[in-house]
Design a protein around this nucleic acid. Sequence first.
DNA 1: TTGTATGCGTTATCAA
DNA 2: TTGATAACGCATACAA
Lengths: 363, 363
Amino acid sequence: MGAQGKGQTAAVEDNPSRPPAPRPPTVTDVARVAGVSTATVSRVLNDIPTVDAKLARRVRTAITKLGYEPSRVARSLRVKRSRVWALVIPELRNPFFTDMISGVEEVARAAGFMLFLCNADSDVDKEASYLRLAVAEHVAGIILSPASQAASARALGTLGTTPVVTVDRRLDAPVDWVGVNNRQGAEMAVHHLADNGYRRIACISGPGDTSTGAARLAGYRRARGARGTDGGPDLVRVGDFDENHGFRAMGQLLRLRPPPDAVFATNNLISLGALRAIDEAGARVPEDIAIVGFDDMPWTSLVKTPLTAVAQPTYDIGRETARLLMSRVEGDAAPPREIMLSPTLVVRGSSSARRSALSQRQR
Amino acid sequence: MGAQGKGQTAAVEDNPSRPPAPRPPTVTDVARVAGVSTATVSRVLNDIPTVDAKLARRVRTAITKLGYEPSRVARSLRVKRSRVWALVIPELRNPFFTDMISGVEEVARAAGFMLFLCNADSDVDKEASYLRLAVAEHVAGIILSPASQAASARALGTLGTTPVVTVDRRLDAPVDWVGVNNRQGAEMAVHHLADNGYRRIACISGPGDTSTGAARLAGYRRARGARGTDGGPDLVRVGDFDENHGFRAMGQLLRLRPPPDAVFATNNLISLGALRAIDEAGARVPEDIAIVGFDDMPWTSLVKTPLTAVAQPTYDIGRETARLLMSRVEGDAAPPREIMLSPTLVVRGSSSARRSALSQRQR
DNA sequence: TTGTATGCGTTATCAA
DNA sequence: TTGATAACGCATACAA
């Protein structure tokens, strides 16, 4: 109900009583008002100590009086480096990345850096295009989670001297990296399933041309090898790190004869899709199929059977990445560093110890 | 292998075999190589038609030969407007906003705009600080989802002529807005619960100084009024739009005597917290308490009792917001516009028709 | 149609 | 310690 606020569209014309040029003040204006040179204003702005306290005060009052705000673009042009980072990630809708970004944002903001958000959409061309834009914007540094191992490493060459820190996904190149021990995380998942009596453990893997996809699959294979579990290569399903792949792969796995008795879902979106497939097939977790995911999410404890998952210190990953980039931006020229954090296994009902076929019948 | 070059202090001069200056090429370089003036290069760059095809070709080959990339910061300084938008949101870890951002990003990238990601962290000071930075960076436009209705409206004044489009959360100011009909969405939720026989319908609301918090609460109250349901003001719990508030409020509601038989959770994080509280209390959905959430998420169909939710066209909201800002950036000076999309109710098990007390006992 | 020259707002170099 | 002045890389008014 109520009236629409649309009324009174009358005087759209320019108001002649408005000051002629609402041009934002510049250093020159500040200098004039403070009665000093622009050089002195600049010195005050940049906290250069060799300036008389009295003059500095005059400058500061002039600044507040005018409501002056230094132009970051003019400064960027002059010093040939902006206080901006580019954040290039493969998928914005994956909560892992947004949590990670939260960590990056915290330290960037504290240091006065703005963040260019670049969503590559898992597309190497979009990624390359964003990287070009980033250098065209004279960003001070780049945080990159590469869409692909091969193509993205090539793109690195075009970046000139801009510092780059990769995160989560590695590159075959001498470049900083922050992330978790993905192979270890995968091994933990599979060993845990084997410990709980599962023998046919499947894996829904991500793309082979991402280091995380490759490492988690490698960990899975290694752990299976160590435990001598059953089943052949058809238990491995490689595809994208998304819900769709999780859904379809899980459907295929459930139709296998014999089907797997457990599955390792290698990221949170794949887990989501796999759970949906299990649900639609009317299968029970873990009686018909156990599942362990990668990435612990707010919803993992709330699904029908709470999900066991390999948890990453996602926010910390973002913070460490930003700190490392910060040191590079400030001139740290040490050889490339790799900061590897540890994943942890959060055990819940989806991987509960398997009952033997006998005891199942006894129920 | 050779001697270290360090000894030869004789030749302090630049190594002649190395290119003297790995300085990125500029318009001047391109102009020199192409044998034209910088003005012509600039014209080619900006697709100004009044340039001879032959010269244009020469320029273009020079550009590719040199690997020239125009400096967006120099251009920004010159034209006093960058091809960058600022995206100011209250909470990066709320998937609603990241989905919305995906939509924004799609149209921004297509138009060659970069995005400054500004996470205000529900803090009006951080928000104000980011808005200042945005103008200091000469952004072409701002997409703002205000942390608070009152404080953020004040901040608008400092923005000068920079176009602003608000999204999701409104402001008490004549400014563009894109979002859904939040009051209607809330009404749908409550009417649905009432239709299914619930009589004591609680509400876990967001902050009163956000338009979405206020509108959803208003819709809840209005629908309750229309249906004449039971219960008093203690059925309404106001707090933050986060999981913690959802968890605590739900716990309090469950301890009420008599407790509510249904609850409306006014955003996805509150739903998460409420479900967790219900779970920990050992209550069943919907037998002990029915629940309807706001925002449909990938996990909503997978929780123990699939969640009925008011769904928003989140991605579209982002796209529409970006399109509106684009038109403003291109000079559209029409009066402020409001684009209101419609929410839809996705019905699942968490709000199934209530069984009477009698039939419940009969089970 | 093309070129010359100037300025965007800042910082850095050099003299004073 | 301070100030005049020259860039930074680009776009444009004006002249040719």
